Amino acid sequence: MSTPAVEVQNLRKVYGSGHTEVIAIRDATLSIARGEIVGMLGPSGSGKSTILTAMALINPPTSGQIAINGTPVLDGSKALVDLRAFRRQHLGFVFQKANLIPFLTALENVQIALEVNDTAPKAARQRAMELLDYLGVAERANNLPVALSGGEQQRVAVARALANNPSLILADEPTAALDSQRGRQVMELFAKVAHERNAGVLVVTHDHRTLDVFDRIVDVEDGMIRERAPENGVGNQS
Rank of each mutant, 00 (worst) to 15 (best):
G39V: 10
L107E: 13
P72V: 04
E130T: 10
D75A: 12
G47A: 11
D207W: 07
T175G: 10
G233Q: 07
L104C: 03
V137M: 03
R84S: 10
P4I: 06
L211T: 12
V204H: 08
P60W: 08
D179V: 12
A157H: 06
D133E: 13
A141N: 00
E227D: 15
I58D: 10
R184L: 14
L135F: 13
L131F: 00
G235Y: 09
S149Y: 05
G136F: 02
L148N: 03
A147M: 13
G150I: 01
I68W: 03
N236T: 13
N142V: 01
L211E: 01
A54M: 03
I101K: 08
G42Q: 01
M129K: 09
P166N: 14
I169D: 08
G39L: 13
K97N: 15
A113K: 04
R88F: 06
I32Q: 06
F103V: 14
G200Q: 08
E108Q: 15
Q126W: 05
L178H: 02
R226G: 11
L11N: 04
E188P: 00
G47M: 09
R182E: 11
A113L: 07
I225E: 04
P102V: 14
D133G: 11
K48D: 05
Y134C: 07
K13C: 05
G200Y: 04
S180H: 12
A171L: 13
R197K: 15
H90G: 05
N99S: 14
A106S: 11
E139Y: 04
I66T: 01
P43Y: 14
S44M: 07
I225C: 04
A161V: 09
R87F: 12
M55E: 02
A24H: 05
T62C: 02
A123D: 14
F190E: 05
R216W: 08
V158G: 03
T29K: 08
T175D: 08
P121V: 14
R155S: 07
L11E: 04
